[in-house]
Simulated assay, not measured.
Amino acid sequence: MSTPHTRRSFIGHAAAGFSTLALPRWGQAQPATEPAPRPAQIEHAVTAPVAIEVNARPIPAFEPRDRSRTRFGSLQYRSGLVLTSPHRGFGGLSGIRVDAKGERFLALSDQGSWFTGSIRYSGRAMVGLDDVEAAPMLNAEGRPITEKRLWYDTESLARDGNLVYVGLERVNQIMRFDFSKGGTRARGEVLPTPPAVRKLPYNKGLEALVFVPKGQPLAGTLIAFSERGLDANENLIAFLIGGPSPGQFSVRRTEKFDISDAVLLASGELLILERKFSWFTGIDIRIRSIPLKSIAPGALVDGPVLFNADLGHEVDNMEGIDAHVTAEGETVLTMISDDNFSLLQRTLLLQFTLVE
């Protein structure tokens, strides 16, 4: 029998496709008794980051049916949080990047918003978030990107130092932000991409971005994965943008899973987070490992499944994944869920240790 939270999650996924979501309001209306604000004041109110409150409830066990179990495939559960906030724009989190210590984070909402802050720990367990700020993503003119029709479905996130890349699924474009120029107030520029990127299917386009750093094969390349853009053989389309070998390749699609995010480990393994939804079984989550060295223009790549979870576990619409290495040498994976701004779904922040 499904637990109550499991049933809510399933219903939430069913309802998500039919909901119409309001965009977050970044400025607050001025009382009628105050003087009318000048244009510069209005722009600052609309675009400035705002401090927000985020509440966290611990998830003591990843599998409620067996609370003693901590090992799930190649992952060992560390801790998890259910996140809520009175801030209207909080939710829809589709990507996350953490710093080398797993403390500071940058996340994005699929409604064109940035979220920054710190993860608070007690020992190895997450217990809350501190210093959280929200801000709208800005275009080249310094205006929220959501002012332009369809420029809001921001689903993917990659980082190369101060350069931050964001994929917009509805229009299949990539924007680049230089955070050395104001952090989340940096203005984005549209990155040139191969023509085939623009031909990805509506609402099943760019879903994951990974930047390859120095010292790795394909260093300097931005790897872009589609959620469900399929090639002639029904495999998932991906792109190598820039770097030494630009081009297109495919990821073997199995069991009707779609890509939701990816992260590159220092070992050279590319971990792909995938999900599958069915009206009969609900949502399934898995992680596959693909060697970076196997990726090249024209290649079809595949790799073993490291992790599986379904609605019998503490999952929701898991859309973001990142990794960091602890002082003890453990590789920790951080995952976050997109609640679709639905009262029937949850924003989850989960952490696992990758076990050899």
Results as ranks from 00 to 15, higher is better:
189 E>C: 01
64 P>E: 01
247 G>V: 11
342 S>Y: 03
85 S>T: 06
110 D>H: 14
244 P>S: 02
286 R>D: 04
145 I>E: 10
312 G>Y: 11
150 L>K: 15
308 N>L: 12
277 F>D: 12
61 A>I: 10
200 L>D: 04
137 M>D: 02
79 S>F: 09
170 R>I: 03
207 E>P: 12
305 V>A: 13
196 A>Q: 15
297 P>T: 03
168 L>D: 00
102 G>Y: 05
47 T>P: 08
295 I>S: 04
183 G>T: 07
260 S>F: 02
347 T>C: 07
135 A>Q: 04
99 D>V: 03
2 S>W: 08
293 K>M: 05
45 A>F: 03
156 S>G: 06
283 I>W: 04
151 W>Y: 15
24 P>A: 00
126 M>N: 11
150 L>R: 15
29 A>C: 07
202 Y>T: 06
206 L>F: 04
165 Y>L: 10
310 D>K: 11
219 A>G: 10
132 V>E: 04
167 G>Y: 00
251 V>S: 02
72 F>T: 09
82 V>E: 15
143 R>C: 05
239 F>A: 02
95 G>K: 15
55 N>C: 01
64 P>S: 05
298 G>R: 03
245 S>I: 01
275 R>S: 09
169 E>K: 01
132 V>S: 09
324 H>K: 06
198 R>P: 01
14 A>N: 09
